[in-house]
Amino acid sequence: MSEHLNFHYNVDGENFVSAGQASVQVKKNLRELGLPPEVIRRVSIAMYEGEINMVIHADGGVADVDVYEDKIVITLDDRGPGIKDVALAMQEGYSTATDSVRSLGFGAGMGLPNMKRYTDDMRIDTTVGVGTKITMTINF
């Protein structure tokens, strides 16, 4: 296993308005590492969607970004309600978000599809009543 960098964040579940702080920090860190702009864009959007999901659905959680020589692995771990039907949740347009979330411009049912769109691999480990762990890999 080669040496790699790890960035660890606690995602605050209470603060919906300022959600996205971890993603913005990741973007900054990756820029400082000199990674290609398109890689940074893919990582930060995938991470932001995941972060928003954790705030909307799971009262926060923890996020890890591991930077290797040829890939970045994002791990999002929460103790939320879990996802009952992953295939349904992956469909564009399906959402269980509330009206107040929608009024802020979220809840379009595009979060998980976007995370898949911008990553090379995405794994969802979820148990109803226990929580969800999402692992996303971006190769470069």
């Binding site: 996205g20 959007i45 802020l104």
Partner: peptide, 24 residues
């Protein structure tokens, strides 16, 4: 105006026209 649509469809360098004004 739906933020995930913008993140899914807008390209880097685009001008993004919206009426959304919150911090997100």
């Amino acid at each position: 105006d739906l933020l995930s649509w913008v993140m899914g469809r807008a390209q880097a360098g685009n001008v993004w026209i919206t009426i959304m004004t919150n911090v997100n």
